[in-house]
Amino acid sequence: MSKALRIITQVLFLYLFALLGNFLVKLLHLPISGSILGLFIVLGLLHFKVLKLSTVELGASFLTSEMLLFFIPSAVAIIQYKSEILQHGSQFLIVILLSTVTVMAVTGLVAQFAIRRLANKKGEIGQ
């Protein structure tokens, strides 16, 4: 099978898991999204060797590396909110910019601090 064809079939295969996730979320009234449930299902199937990595790897790496393309239509949707953006656009931008920078910096620093502390502890035990 050619590579392109394998990518397409694997993408469709992954899509089936998203649909299955959507279906289960509706059926069981779960608060998460269908695609996240689908992720956990695939992860479980890989873990229990029901699914081989090679059956999904090509499609998954194609989808995740071209993911920005799939965000573009929702970004274009902003043009529908002209009046809100003219009125409050700069306020929105200030809040989003400052909060995103803060969140990223705090998360990164907390994680790095904890990782290094763990590494130091292990080092001490080793000595």
Binding site: F17, A18, G21, S35, L39, H47, V56, F70
Partner: peptide, 20 residues
Amino acid sequence: GRWLSNLLQPAVVGFAVPLY
């Protein structure tokens, strides 16, 4: 555009691979 947005769903499922 909806067709492209919809592909976000299998893309999220696809993150199972790096996680695994």
